[in-house]
């Protein structure tokens, strides 16, 4: 298998100041990549640029040995996904939240039901599937977000601070979920986090951003 994600010579400026300059790296092997760095070092921005949700000021992103990746390439966009720290809950049931990505991909209803219920079972939220998603706790919301990304079986999965403002119990659950995902999906998982213990427990590779450089 060739290079699945290649980041070359990325520049990004924020309010005229450089956030990162000439950052390059490539991801080819499956596994969990941990991205660490101090606050404001640009971890989230880096993930968003990789996930094609934000444009770099210079440089380019390539996926699967392809040409320069563009956000309007919907087929490519549907092979990757990013979970935001705030998740972004739709004002509807937990079930419909998780079904969202499948629905817009045109899956049949019975297939959606099967996949969504399996994913909800996996993150331990099946019993809450008919509840409005806005009523979930922070930890549950994060788990739902993971399920929502997981049903899409992404080849590259970005998780931005999956344990931020989550209690230790939910952190443990999320930890074990990610370890299981790693075994189930043959994907690249890139996680930006502050949490060293969490990083140790889940990570295979470590990346570090500081002063606009990627190590």
């Amino acid at each position: 298998m060739g290079v699945r994600l290649n980041v070359s010579n990325i520049y990004k400026y924020y309010n005229g100041k450089p956030l990162f300059e000439n950052c390059s790296c490539s991801f080819d092997r499956s596994g969990v990549y941990i991205l660490m760095g101090p606050n404001g070092s640009g971890k989230s921005t880096f993930l968003r640029i990789c996930a094609l949700l934000e444009n770099p000021d210079r440089g380019e992103i390539n996926y699967f040995d392809g040409n320069r990746a563009l956000p309007k390439d919907i087929n490519l966009m549907r092979r990757i996904t990013l979970l935001f720290p705030e998740v972004g809950v739709f004002n509807t049931t937990v079930f419909k939240n998780v079904a969202y990505g499948l629905k817009i991909r045109g899956f049949k209803n019975n297939k959606i039901k099967e996949k969504v219920e399996e994913a909800l079972q996996f993150v331990g939220l099946l019993h809450k599937k008919e509840q409005n998603a806005l009523t979930l706790s922070t930890g549950e919301t994060k788990r739902m977000g993971i399920a929502r990304a997981l049903v899409l079986e992404p080849e590259v999965l970005f998780l931005d601070e999956p344990t931020a403002s989550v209690d230790w119990k939910n952190t443990e659950i999320i930890e074990s979920i990610i370890i299981q995902i790693k075994q189930r999906l043959n994907s690249i998982i890139i996680i930006a986090t502050h949490d060293k213990e969490f990083a140790m427990a889940t990570g295979d590779f470590l990346l570090y951003i500081r002063d606009g450089r990627l190590y």
Partner: peptide
Amino acid sequence: VPPIIKLASKSLGATSFQTTFTVIKE
């Protein structure tokens, strides 16, 4: 509607039309 809705919908693979429809729904 919080801007995160638009981003979440995009990152889940929605076309711009689907994203807009999701925002209307919210």
